[in-house]
Design a protein around this nucleic acid. Structure first.
Lengths: 344, 344
DNA sequence: GTGAAAGCGCTAACAA
DNA sequence: TTGTTAGCGCTTTCAC
């Protein structure tokens, strides 16, 4: 019925152990033998039984992806896609688990699931990897993990990230290059690790261009559309309006844009608006929003690569494996040259 | 190191097989013994090894969830959450796979993945389950599946769905109850199974109220924000404007709303707009959009329940297991009583 | 370089 | 109602 390693061995005229060697890329197999085995595998279209394998080897060929807040449009999906593709290439499987870090006891649930599936390693995404208690427990269980966009404790394990600060200064520089001098900044929620970095990038680009950073042009936000609306009101309700707004994420950019539209301020003719994340909001907005894209799929794939590597698993989270991937400035319709003179 | 069934057996003073019986809810175990075993399991916080189990029983305790949803509209997230929770309760695990039904050969990829993991069954979501070729191959592989919102071929397998027609007429009735008589309808993309149902529901409610369905008040759409914008232009550019618009989904409602806002038509004072899906768009819109919510998490959970049932798996997709779950009308800010007289 | 034996942790089949 | 025996398909010793 099902093709087993024995069938392959018989056809190739070798022992099961030799087939196993070929399967696992071990040394000490003559090329001729290896070819023969490979041929038999192909001919029989043999697939190793994952369960038998895992049972005898303590490896599961399973990697866990832990996500919190999958409503975060697009991010979770891209993460999943990137990890999934790389897993396929590496002959691993991906088990996605949704966690709710605000729920007490979520760590127990996670660890139970990890234990039951004997995961070979886990990928922790932005919100999850800020949970110190969880990291400690993973370390105690000697379970390799890689964090994506960790924000803090860069040396605690390998991590995959972009240079948030640089990205924020890149988009700010784009606005400056368009002739904007009076640029407002909408900040993210303070608890988020990206918040200070994006602000630092904004300020760095302003200073670099010799432009003042007016504290009244910096308003708080919370990464939501509603928060962007409130910030937009603060910035656009007086007669003294900036010529550009850089919001720390797309949702807030969308909120600010809605306020501009209500107040009859034309985007981008009178006011340029930039966001960050390249989320769904940035693409459905009208006009579409200039933003920064993280290479999320590549980040996830890189995390898989690190996790799959025997070395990494043996050295247990050696942070020297960390990688910083390039971001991309996405130019859309919401930014344009600064108006020759302020509109009011 | 790891707790095995033998440890539990030893602690409870029974044989491994008896523990196995308790684990699998088999009969022929005295209550006292069962209690003792359960106690030992608890005390040792024992988790059965999925691989050992699968290897000896031909069951994997793994369920696959196949999604094709690049935009991750929250639908997929809810689906995943619902399925995951129920899987936990039933002591199953969920393997999420993203598929791209437009990619040639996607079925092979899916079946390879199914074979490698020996999935006990799969849940097919809306776009995936319309693919006849795939269904045939699953049937050939004798792999149980349940479809969620299948649209077509209701008798081909068990399916979990809502009553789309009824939902569309419910929201139409809500508009009528608000005094609207001149209601426009934006249709979905013709290839989507929900499209004719939602339209039928709209027309049924109109007829029921003795209101005419003017063909000029029905415009085509494609379920995107851009499509909603185009439809909105068609409906709102003349001087003869309806007092309400029911768009077949939230994204199109959002597009139409943007057009209204541009044209200075106040929503909901001058124009009521309703959507369908309760998506992210409906909540970030301003004003927020009145819509229909499907109980997506419950639908996914129900699909798991059906799949886990031994009977269903043995009878191979008996359609009598199908279930229709109740939808919900979500009243938000975008609908209000019809204006006393047309605005222009 | 290659193979034989043993066993991973569990459950099916059969006894008792 | 419970226990015993024999594998599931693979990888790990450790021989040869």
């Amino acid at each position: 019925m099902t093709v087993t390693i024995k069938d392959v061995a018989a056809r190739a005229g070798v022992s099961p152990k030799t087939v196993s060697r070929v399967l696992n890329g071990e040394a000490y197999v003559r090329d001729a033998v290896r070819e023969a085995v490979l041929g038999a595998i192909e001919a029989l279209s043999y697939r190793p039984n994952v369960f038998a394998r895992s049972l005898s080897s303590a490896r599961s060929y399973l990697i866990g992806l832990f996500l919190d807040d999958p409503t975060w449009s697009g991010y979770a999906a891209a993460m999943q896609r990137g990890a999934l593709h790389r897993c396929r290439e590496r002959h691993y499987h991906l088990v996605v688990e949704l966690v709710d870090i605000d729920k007490p006891g979520f760590e127990d649930e996670m660890l139970a699931s990890i234990a039951a599936l004997h995961l070979d390693g886990v990928i922790l995404t932005a919100p999850v990897c800020r949970h110190d208690g969880l990291l400690s427990r993973l370390e105690a269980a000697r379970l390799p993990y890689v964090r994506v966009s960790p924000g803090e404790n860069p040396l605690r394990s390998a991590a995959v990230d972009i240079d948030e600060t640089r990205a924020a200064s890149d988009i700010t520089r784009h606005l400056i290059a368009l002739g904007h001098r009076d640029i407002a900044f909408i900040e993210g929620i303070p608890t988020h690790a990206a918040t200070p970095k994006r602000r630092a990038g904004f300020e760095a680009a302003m200073h670099e261009a010799g432009l003042p950073v007016d504290p009244r042009r910096i308003v708080g936000g919370d990464f939501t559309v509603g928060g962007g609306r409130v910030a937009g009101e603060a910035l656009l309700s007086s007669s003294d309006v900036p010529s550009a707004i850089f919001a720390s994420n797309d949702d807030m950019a969308l909120g600010a844009m809605a306020v501009a539209s209500q107040r009859g301020i034309a985007v981008p003719e009178q006011l340029s608006i930039a966001g960050f994340d390249d989320s769904y909001s940035a693409r459905i907005a009208w006009p579409t929003i200039t933003t920064i894209r993280q290479p999320i799929m590549e980040m996830a794939a890189t995390a898989v690569d690190i996790l799959v590597d025997r070395q990494y698993r043996e050295t247990m989270q050696d942070p020297t494996w960390s990688r910083v991937l390039p971001h991309e400035l996405i130019l859309r319709e919401s930014t344009a040259p600064a108006p020759a003179r302020p509109f009011r």
